[in-house]
Design a protein around this nucleic acid. Sequence first.
DNA 1: GATTAATCGAGACGGTACGTCGTGTCTTACC
DNA 2: GGTAAGACACGACGTACCGTCTCGATTAATC
Lengths: 202, 202, 202, 202
Amino acid sequence: MTESRRGRPRDTDIDERVLRAATAMLLEHGYAGLSPNEVAERAGVAKTTLYRRWPTKDHLAIAVVARLQEDDEITDTGDIRRDLTGYMVKIAAALERMRSAGRPAGDHDASAGVVAELVAAGARHDDIGRLGREVFARRNALALALITRARERGELRPGLDPVVLLDQLAGALYYRVLITGAPVDRAYTERLVATALDGARN
Amino acid sequence: MTESRRGRPRDTDIDERVLRAATAMLLEHGYAGLSPNEVAERAGVAKTTLYRRWPTKDHLAIAVVARLQEDDEITDTGDIRRDLTGYMVKIAAALERMRSAGRPAGDHDASAGVVAELVAAGARHDDIGRLGREVFARRNALALALITRARERGELRPGLDPVVLLDQLAGALYYRVLITGAPVDRAYTERLVATALDGARN
Amino acid sequence: MTESRRGRPRDTDIDERVLRAATAMLLEHGYAGLSPNEVAERAGVAKTTLYRRWPTKDHLAIAVVARLQEDDEITDTGDIRRDLTGYMVKIAAALERMRSAGRPAGDHDASAGVVAELVAAGARHDDIGRLGREVFARRNALALALITRARERGELRPGLDPVVLLDQLAGALYYRVLITGAPVDRAYTERLVATALDGARN
Amino acid sequence: MTESRRGRPRDTDIDERVLRAATAMLLEHGYAGLSPNEVAERAGVAKTTLYRRWPTKDHLAIAVVARLQEDDEITDTGDIRRDLTGYMVKIAAALERMRSAGRPAGDHDASAGVVAELVAAGARHDDIGRLGREVFARRNALALALITRARERGELRPGLDPVVLLDQLAGALYYRVLITGAPVDRAYTERLVATALDGARN
DNA sequence: GATTAATCGAGACGGTACGTCGTGTCTTACC
DNA sequence: GGTAAGACACGACGTACCGTCTCGATTAATC
């Protein structure tokens, strides 16, 4: 099955070095400050090598953030409010991390460059868009299952559409970060979940 | 009060011509297809003149969409659900308009490039970010007032936070367009408002 | 004869102010540093006014240097060597003055920008070229007459072509300043005249 | 000795194509008509590539004329007058070639734009100035050696300064082309050399 | 062990959009 | 009609950035 490769095998260490350098640049200097040229130089790698793995700056950027979010998980304690709050807090934290990228410390009350650029990247390249949507779909599937289970055990009203609920919750966070620039701290997140669940309860 | 200007006054017709050309290019060919150079040429205007008013391609793009949304208004019929639905439909329509920008007809089930690029522009330039947030703040202020009035006349429960409600509604739309790529048609919009108001009723 | 002008007469003080400012800029920052825009501002004059008198930056520059050389005169003492030396020294001095324009002090061993730019200006605009050649022709006419008189009174050999002699002398100075960058100090000038006259004597 | 280069080597053919295109434009349309942009296009080369080799339009122009003069050589027949005349004729021819650049045919009795612009370029950029002076120094070294040899074998008087003689000859040509606009045809050149040697003979 | 195929390093090359710079003209109001 | 102020036109220039291509040198698998 695994086609036997010929020729020199890829140096697996390179991925690590490149992504580390790219992550640093992206978080420190924002999307515009992420230069494949410079990433290659800092990682001690040829541009050819870099582009063989990530055919585009956009792809590289996506790879960076994908790796950053790998560890996000969803827990199911049986208390829907608590579980959703936990999930939202993780999302909010991730957003906050990128919101301040490329900005002087403390200047994160503005809006979020990197996230927007990544979304734009998804629009520029079909594969990135697909990949991004898949990532979110996979992550959200867990949350949707969570909601569905809560509904089935009677915590939520029967007619509730889990997708709409999730849109409301996650959407509010993204909306604040991307559009209005309002904070998405823990207090807000809890109030948000509480409000949404008020009408969702059975 | 009206400071008497000296020197040749700005030709107000130029704004019109430039923005018209820019709007066409932005909606037809997307953000990458918006070229200040070509806009100037099509508008019959010197590049210098264009850059005097919009110092950056980003500024020009923002001016375009700002003008596109000028006419969006909010009506207050006394029926909060109807009014909010109307508002959301308008937002959804605007998003849909930009989502398909620069894409072959029918290919709008992908995600939204222009919107994301504009958000990114807001992150690249402080003044654009401020301006964008002001526009949204002004527009949302009307919606917030609407919600507040509905709450005062007893349509909504007393403890409801209008901001959170609005975040949930508008956020869901942006979230679907920008992140998940799900449709934001009328049916969804109505379901969204209904769901959100379920828990908000008195 | 003098056509009776109508309207507001030109402010003669303006010529003075503008040329003074232009001279300063030209000598301090070289030809590229002479900006009509800035000259107008420094002279407290509108650009319109400036361009009404000097239709081009080139014309303005020429006017500046023409004024600088107004006082160059030729003396006829009866000693052809002495007179020619005097003339050449004046030319050399003028060249040295412009050679150092726009350069840090002491850095005049390079070549001469302003002179070259003025020559180029003469090539760009026919009128400037004509005017320049006339100025040189007028000045040289005096020198040629000087040589002719010396030849007639037997100081120089009969077959000598005054034009060729003058070309050799003035040419050598310009050649050094413009092309080779060699110095044109008094010692060189004297040696030059002596050498040229060696073969010109009767 | 030959340092082993790494990376993709420069395409030597590009210099050829670019310089050929630039030469054509410079000689046909003068200095203002030499557009790096268009040169790149005509040579089928990216602007980046062009600017990597000639960082400025001035540098490109200098490279063009430097190549034009590469083939100028000096012959030593033992007859100093003949040799110097030959050299001067070559210089005059080169000057005449550039004098008519960018002007309608027959309109070359004006003055010389390109030469002046090149001199100006030498003043704008130190490296160009140095390079230009080196080129002239190298070429003149041969002529100076010629003169020295003639002096040593008794054709010229012992006290003659070769540099001064060369200044007189070459200077006269440049002076006429750049300043007075007088012709530098063969007849004049011969008369010039004859006159200068009159006083230089032993 | 020789060959082969793919990777890596280095840097030139292509393409193109962007914004700047500089001159000179034009349009106001004012004198 | 001259003057002040500043917008406007025109166009060249150079830069920045991304991504491709071309070398030579390496490395591992295969014959």
